[in-house]
Design a protein around this nucleic acid. Structure first.
Length: 253
DNA sequence: TAACACCTGTTC
DNA sequence: GAACAGGTGTTA
């Protein structure tokens, strides 16, 4: 479910846990037992951070790493519901994991060691060389977390619309001006989405259970057949790497 | 690089 | 019944 803007919104809500002490662990989904082995409360939460689409709780010893995949939710509340897969108890609240599909992961590790590309903010001038090394369609390149971290199916389509680039174009075919447009579009689209607290279609909620608002501002994603908000041409949907991909055939070349 | 697997729920 | 869903890890 969540891409970078949703995960960022969640971790901002979870920062209230910094300095709090994890008192008890209730692992209700047996698949989470093995990856959480070795986590023995009490443990103090030193910081709550994000890396790509991962949520990190740095403890006084070790690291709790969550990935919500498609339908996971990480929520703060007074009491966990019966269908929670994992419940972390703190002195005055509980943090619990819900996931109707059950793809979400939680693990305890001594350090964060995933193969992730750089964060999509700051100086992105490295994109030029990186894109040159791949012939894959640029949309699939953007969604590959080893290239750049945090971009998923919604924002890949949105970013390419903003940059006016056809999602099927090979990454190494982009001209300098197009790479520049991409360098501008990536942080712009993601920052706007964070400002609106992410995109909610059905499952996504922040740490307090609130929906995001960026779905109102999407220009192509899930707008198949509707007029492009720039030129009026019907938005097209195609499949790329098995995923629905939306674009304006006139604005994006 | 593509298909499939992991799962359940919703929509056509 | 079939297709689809914010993701990613494994396999052919």
């Amino acid at each position: 479910m969540p891409e970078l803007p949703e995960v960022e919104t969640i971790i901002r809500g979870l920062k209230v846990l910094e300095g709090d002490t994890l008192l008890h662990l209730d692992i209700r989904d047996p698949r989470l037992r093995e990856p959480l082995r070795g986590l023995c409360p009490p443990r103090r939460v030193e910081s709550v951070r994000r890396r790509g689409k991962y949520i990190l709780l740095e403890l006084d010893r070790g690291l709790l790493i969550f990935h919500l995949r498609m339908t996971g939710r990480l929520l703060l509340g007074e009491e966990a519901p019966d269908d929670a897969r994992l419940v972390l108890s703190f002195p005055k609240q509980v943090l619990y994991l819900l996931d109707r599909r059950g793809f979400a992961t939680a693990e305890y590790a001594s350090s964060f060691a995933k193969e992730l590309g750089p964060e999509p903010f700051g100086d992105l001038s490295w994109l030029k060389d990186a894109l040159r090394r791949s012939r894959r369609p640029v949309k699939l390149w953007l969604m590959d977390q080893r290239n750049i971290a945090g971009i998923g199916n919604i924002y890949a389509s949105e970013i390419l619309f903003h940059a006016r680039i056809d999602p099927r174009r090979p990454a190494n075919s982009l001209k300098p001006g197009e790479v520049e447009a991409l360098v501008r579009a990536i942080p712009e689209v993601l920052s706007q989405a964070i400002a609106h607290r992410g995109t909610t279609f059905s499952d996504y909620r922040d740490a307090r259970g609130e929906r995001g608002g960026f779905q109102e501002f999407l220009l192509v994603y899930r707008r198949e057949g509707k007029p492009c908000k720039v030129c009026g041409t019907p938005i097209r949907r195609i499949r790329l790497g098995g995923r629905s991909t939306f674009f304006c055939p006139r604005c994006q070349r």
